[in-house]
């Protein structure tokens, strides 16, 4: 199974956004990195099924998403999380600044149903089109659109944003200051 340098580079190039996707999905950096590692191994093992010329990043997102979902189904049987406390515990990871800056937002994100969360992240943060997100999630484009809409509505609700000011300058300024200060 030869893996040529160009494919390897394309895989590594996808890693930063795969991590961001995995962290957004799982809310946990260590788990996310394990998911990314597993994704890389699967991608290498199945490189023959990758169509050259297509989007390597989208292909790897599909692998990661499937891995996460099968793991999620397993975990759900293990952990009853009626009040969302498990979801909250997943969002804390104090030692890395960029992961705590958005604690409130992450906590809200963790409360979304997984279908809605992944749709929102793929479209709203990863920069995939609705069509690409639908391919990654193996569902209809209309389904993705409605999940993204429901996710936004629910987030606005959870974060009590009724107008831009509710999420206003204080929040944003603090986040920016924290981002600047945290990486110095």
């Amino acid at each position: 199974m030869p893996l040529d340098a160009a494919l390897k580079d394309a895989m590594l190039a996808a890693v930063p956004s795969l991590r961001a996707f995995a962290i957004s999905l799982s809310g946990n950096v260590d788990r996310a990195d394990d998911l990314v590692q597993e994704t890389l191994l699967r991608a290498i093992a199945n490189i023959d099924s990758f169509q050259p010329g297509t989007n390597m990043s989208a292909w790897m997102f599909t692998i990661l998403r499937n891995l996460f979902r099968s793991e999620y189904r397993k975990r759900r049987r293990e952990v009853e999380d009626a009040d969302g406390s498990y979801a909250e515990s997943l969002t804390s990871h104090p030692e890395q600044s960029s992961h705590v800056e958005f604690k409130e937002f992450r906590t809200a994100l963790a409360k979304l149903p997984p279908d809605q969360r992944e749709a929102l992240i793929l479209v709203g943060a990863s920069g995939f089109s609705y069509e690409e997100a639908a391919a990654i999630c193996e569902c209809a484009v209309g389904t993705i659109k409605s999940r993204v809409n429901r996710a936004r509505t629910r987030l606005a609700d959870l974060l009590s944003i009724e107008s831009a000011e509710d999420f206003g300058p204080d929040h944003t300024t603090r986040a920016i200051l924290a981002a600047g200060g945290g990486r110095g």
Binding site: S17, H99, G124, S126, R152, L155, E162
Partner: peptide
């Protein structure tokens, strides 16, 4: 639209923060 854009900003800022860490 402003609420949607605020959520979008926050989401992208969080996401891009991780992306900017590069490849561990």
């Amino acid at each position: 639209r402003d609420v949607q854009s605020k959520i979008g900003q926050q989401l992208r800022a969080m996401y891009d923060g991780v992306v900017s860490e590069g490849v561990p």
